[in-house]
Amino acid sequence: MGLLDKEFTDGNIVIAKAEDLMNWARLSSLWQVSFGLACCAIEMMATSASHYDFDRFGVIPRPSPRHADIIIISGTVTLKMATRIKRLYEQMPEPKYIISMGSCSNSGGPYWEHGYHVLKGIDRVIPVDVYVPGCPPRPEALLEGLIKLQEKIRKTSLVKKST
């Protein structure tokens, strides 16, 4: 809220739509499950480290899924791991978002044909919000993916739909 700092003479009121306010709050502090799978996880680490600084988008790694809003599936999902990922996802509180990072978790990547133990796409197990292509995606690409997710959240409607 830097724009409004020191602009008022006394305490004041800001009027906003509930939707805008909630969405703004949600999208600016997306805590991430600190969870890496394969090569893409190294790029994810590089994204959160000094050079690319994930923190400035409000993304902070949390060791437990119960604190987190977003999970980045960064790498190859094997059959042995897929059931565990599903459990991780189920433990996250709503609202929760998923970024699928890299070709492997999008579709099996280089292992699509002969990978007898590779799940060909994480979307067979859990729903995905944003797909980031690349093998590995550059940190810039992951940032772009995050911004896409933020746009998606900004457009979310909180109105109860009548059935």
Binding site: A38, R84, Y111, H114, G115, H117
Partner: peptide
């Protein structure tokens, strides 16, 4: 085994030069 990506099976299906990118992905550091 949570990241078993079947490297050795891939080798048996690829030609020799095609294996190089798969070797990259073993020790990715």
């Amino acid at each position: 085994g949570y990241l078993h990506r079947c490297f050795e099976k891939h080798c048996e299906a690829m030609t020799y030069p095609q294996i190089v990118p798969y070797t990259d992905r073993m020790d990715y550091l």
